[in-house]
């Protein structure tokens, strides 16, 4: 199949909410810093952020700065904007975050044609402003 350029979904149609467990991730994103939730005791990563480390039970959290690069773990090619049903080529990806073993994000990828996305492809973070002043980490082909 030939789809053409993959585009991130428009940020003005995206809304998120936060809670005290997840907010540090989104506050860092506002400053274009990619982080992930790391246990302050055993050092294991987990995403999305949750109150307790599932490995050791600790409530201590660290939010280290990550390199902002990642590897495509899987992807889907979609062809309709979910908000209005109009033709729109976007590629949701699941990525493994570099520097945070075990932590994944779901995002869109751009910077290549949709049919050229592959599992194992290297990507770098690409910030998309969304509603209410928040910023969403998407990715571009590296």
């Amino acid at each position: 199949m030939s789809y053409g350029p993959a585009r991130a979904l428009p940020g003005d149609q995206i809304k998120i909410t936060t809670n005290p467990d997840t907010e540090p991730f989104w506050e860092a994103a506002k400053e274009h810093k990619l982080t992930a939730c790391q246990c302050g005791d055993c050092g294991k990563f987990r995403m999305p952020p949750t109150p307790v480390c599932p490995e050791c039970g600790s409530r201590k959290k660290d939010w280290p700065a990550l390199p902002g690069t990642a590897t495509v773990f899987s992807y889907v090619v979609c062809n309709k904007n979910p908000k209005n049903g109009e033709d729109y080529i976007y590629v949701p990806i699941v990525v493994d975050l570099d520097g945070a073993p075990g932590a994944r994000l779901n995002a869109n990828v751009s910077g290549c044609n949709a049919e050229d996305v592959t599992i194992g492809m290297k990507v770098t973070v690409d910030w998309t402003p969304i509603q209410d002043g928040w910023v969403l980490p998407n990715f571009k082909k590296a």
Binding site: I14, I16, T17, T22, P92, N108
Partner: peptide, 13 residues
């Protein structure tokens, strides 16, 4: 959107 699905929904899944 809720704090959990905010890590999934924005990707258009």
């Amino acid at each position: 959107p809720n704090p959990e699905n905010s890590f999934l929904q924005p990707s258009g899944l």
